[in-house]
Design a protein around this nucleic acid. Structure first.
Lengths: 200, 200
DNA sequence: TCGATACGCAACAGTACCGTTTCGAAATGG
DNA sequence: CCATTTCGAAACGGTACTGTTGCGTATCGA
C-alpha cells in the first residue's frame, strides 16, 4: 500500500530539468543543421550552445551516438496526407514533400549525414532509416501498388525500381540542382516526365 | 646565352623526390578510400602512411585542401567508349560504368565526400566536378541529344531532366541498394524501365 | 669541394576535445 | 531542517593534431 505509483515514483532529490534536456537536443540539431558532421560534433560545443554543463549531458547520454539518435528521433516530420484519387497526384505530393523538406536547413544536413556517415555509424543510420525513410518509402510503395491494381500503371513495372527512379531523381536535384532552392513545380515535372513510361 | 632552358631550369640543390610525391598522393587516396572524411584526414596520418616527414608535405602543399584537390585530380578515370549505334546501348554503357566505378572503394568514398562535404569545401568540389562529373554529364547529354536527333527519343523530353532521372536512379541504388555490390544487370534494368517513357 | 636544397625524424608550443571530478547553489521529498 | 539529486561552471589529466623548427644526412649544380 505504501507503493502508490511505481511508474511515476520520483526518486527524491532535485528533478532533472526538462528545459535543459530540450536545450541540449535543440543545440545538437542546430549544430548539425549548420553543417557540423558527426565526427566534429563535440559534446563541449553542444553544452556551450545549450548553456548547459557537460555533466548534464553525460548524465543523460553516455555517448554522442545515443544523443544524436534521440535528437534525430524528434525530427519525425509528419507524412503528407494523400488524396488517394490519382497516382499522379499522390506521387507529386510525395515528391513535393521531399522537395520542401530538402529546403529546410536541418533536413538538408540530416540528409548529408545519411549519405556520408552511414558507413561509420551504422546503428544510428538504421534507426534514422526506420524513423524517417521507411515510412515514406512505404507510402510511395502503396501508391504505386494501388496504381497497378487500379489499372493506372502497367502491371509489369518493378515497384522497387520505380521508387528508386522517382526518389533518385529528386535526390539528384537536391544535391546537384540549383543551389538557391528547387523550382516549385519540380515534383510535377519529374512525375510527368516519368509517368508516360509507367502508365498502362 | 647562358640561359639555356628557363622552363626546365633546375633551381640548384637536391631535387624533390617524385617518389615521395607519389607516396603522399597515394597515402591520401588510401586514407580517403578507407572512409576517412576530409575533416579527420590529418597531415600526420598521411605522412606516416606515406613514410614521409610532415615537412615534405608542407613544402609542397600549404593546406589540406590543396593536397586533396591534387590527389583527386589524379583519379580521372577514363570515360567509356560509346558505340554510338543505339541510345539504349550507349546509356547502358554509361550507367554501367557508374555502377562498376561505384564498386571500387576509392570511388565510393570520393562520392561520399562529394555528397557530404560539398558545402564545407566548395572550391574542392568545384574542381572535382570539373574533373570527374562534368565529362560524364556531357557524354550522357550528347547521347540523349543524338537520340532525339535520330528520332529514337521523343523530341519534347527535357534533356537535363532525363539525365537527372537516369543518374539519380543509379545513385539511389549506389547509396541504398544492396550492400554487397549492385547487380550486374542494374544499368540495363534502369534503362529499360525508363526508355518506354522517353522513346518516340 | 662547396653551397644549396630536400630528405626523414624528432621535438616544440598551441589548440581542441575527451570523459571525469569537484565545487557551491538550487530544488525537491520526508 | 535534512538528505538527496541536479544544476552550471571550472578544472583535471589524457589524447590527437596543428604548423614550425632544428638536426644530421643525401643529392644535386657549379
Amino acid at each position: 500500500m505504501t507503493i502508490q505509483e511505481p511508474a511515476t515514483a520520483r526518486p527524491a532529490g532535485r528533478p532533472r530539468s526538462e528545459k535543459a534536456e530540450k536545450a541540449i537536443i535543440d543545440a545538437t540539431l542546430d549544430l548539425i543543421g549548420e553543417g557540423t558532421g558527426l565526427v566534429e560534433l563535440s559534446i563541449e560545443a553542444i553544452a556551450s550552445r545549450a548553456g548547459v554543463g557537460k555533466t548534464t549531458i553525460y548524465r543523460r547520454w553516455s555517448n554522442k551516438e545515443d544523443l544524436v539518435a534521440d535528437a534525430l528521433a524528434t525530427l519525425q516530420a509528419p507524412l503528407p496526407r494523400l488524396a488517394g484519387v490519382s497516382v499522379r497526384d499522390d506521387l507529386i505530393v510525395l515528391l513535393d514533400s521531399m522537395r520542401s523538406e530538402a529546403g529546410q536547413v536541418r533536413t538538408r544536413c540530416v540528409m548529408n549525414i545519411a549519405f556520408s556517415e552511414s558507413d561509420r555509424y551504422p546503428r544510428l543510420m538504421e534507426r534514422f532509416v526506420d524513423i524517417a525513410v521507411e515510412p515514406r518509402r512505404q507510402a510511395m510503395r502503396e501508391v504505386i501498388r494501388r496504381g497497378i491494381a487500379s489499372g493506372e500503371l502497367r502491371p509489369d513495372i518493378e515497384v522497387e525500381m520505380s521508387m528508386a527512379i522517382l526518389s533518385g531523381a529528386m535526390i539528384w536535384h537536391h544535391k546537384w540542382g540549383p543551389a538557391d532552392g528547387l523550382p516549385a513545380d519540380l515534383a510535377e515535372r519529374i512525375v510527368d516526365h516519368l509517368l508516360p513510361g509507367l502508365a498502362a
